[in-house]
Simulated scan of single mutants.
Amino acid sequence: MATTLYAIALGANRYGRHGRPSAAIVAALAAIGGVEAVSPIIASAPIGPSTRMFANAAALIRSDEPPPALLARLKAIERRMGRRPGIRWGARPIDLDIILWSGGPWRTRTLTIPHPAFRDRRFVLGPLARIAARWRDPISGLRVRHLLSQVDRRRPRT
């Protein structure tokens, strides 16, 4: 299989084996390998029941793995870093999600690319726009930077 480019979202909001959430993101990137670009790490408010702030980043990686194999490897990295099944959107030492890949849309029972919720998440789009602003969402046809501007427009001003 040809080398494929993937956009990965990384998040953490609980101290784990690697220390602070930002250190977990750095450790996860080292474990993933094939990193072409990494966004700055940002802080964001949690979604759901967690009360801890998240550290979030995005990375572009190259891999010859098909999407299901990469997903399995990312989930294995999460487990090695202390992630356990639990409350949806709860505190976690690391979260690794495939957001986009250069192969276009992908859908199976266990994996959907593009990630179904990425268009509504500033904590994904903001970091991703720093490293892949021109990448087009294969579903909407919009570039990441345009999706980010739409999310920003929908946010209420306080």
Rank of each mutant, 00 (worst) to 15 (best):
R52M: 08
G48N: 05
N13E: 07
R143N: 02
R83D: 04
L125N: 01
P49S: 08
I87H: 09
A117C: 09
V124T: 04
E78Y: 03
T4N: 14
R17A: 12
L74W: 03
I61K: 02
N56L: 01
L147E: 11
I61V: 12
S63A: 08
H146Q: 11
A43P: 07
I41C: 15
D152W: 13
G82K: 00
I94K: 01
K75A: 12
R157D: 14
F123E: 02
M53G: 14
A45Y: 13
P67C: 11
G86T: 01
L100E: 03
L148P: 06
V151E: 09
S44W: 07
R145P: 05
P21H: 10
M53D: 15
T51G: 09
A23G: 12
S22K: 13
A9R: 00
Y6Q: 04
M1R: 14
G126T: 13
R83A: 01
D97M: 04
G11F: 01
P67R: 00
G141E: 15
R121P: 10
A9W: 01
P156L: 15
R88I: 08
T4G: 11
S39N: 06
R88D: 13
V26Y: 03
G11H: 02
I8G: 03
S102I: 00
I98R: 00
L71A: 10
P127G: 04
R155T: 13
R134H: 13
R88H: 13
G104C: 04
R14D: 07
T51L: 12
L74G: 05
S22H: 07
S149P: 04
V26N: 05
L70F: 11
I61R: 01
R109I: 13
L100I: 09
D97F: 04
V35A: 12
W106H: 14
R92D: 06
L10G: 02
R154Q: 10
T51Y: 05
R62F: 06
A9E: 04
R143C: 10
I131L: 14
N56Y: 02
Y6W: 12
R79H: 14
P66E: 14
W101G: 06
D137K: 03
R119C: 11
L70H: 05
R145L: 05
L96W: 02
A28V: 05
P40D: 15
G103C: 08
Y6G: 06
E78H: 03
P49G: 08
I87S: 07
R154G: 08
N13T: 07
T3I: 14
I25F: 04
G33D: 07
R73I: 01
I77G: 12
S63K: 10
A58Q: 00
A30M: 07
I139E: 09
P67I: 01
S44N: 10
R52W: 09
I113S: 03
A91F: 02
A72I: 02
V38A: 12
L70C: 10
A129N: 12
P68A: 07
T112A: 07
G82I: 01
A55D: 14
R154W: 12
F54H: 03
G16V: 05
I94N: 02
T110G: 10
L142E: 08
A28P: 07
R20Q: 09
R79A: 14
P127C: 03
R17L: 06
R79P: 11
A37R: 13
Y15D: 13
Y15G: 12
A31Q: 15
A133W: 01
R107M: 15
N56W: 00
P21V: 11
R136S: 15
A45R: 09
A59I: 01
G141M: 13
P85V: 03
T108H: 15
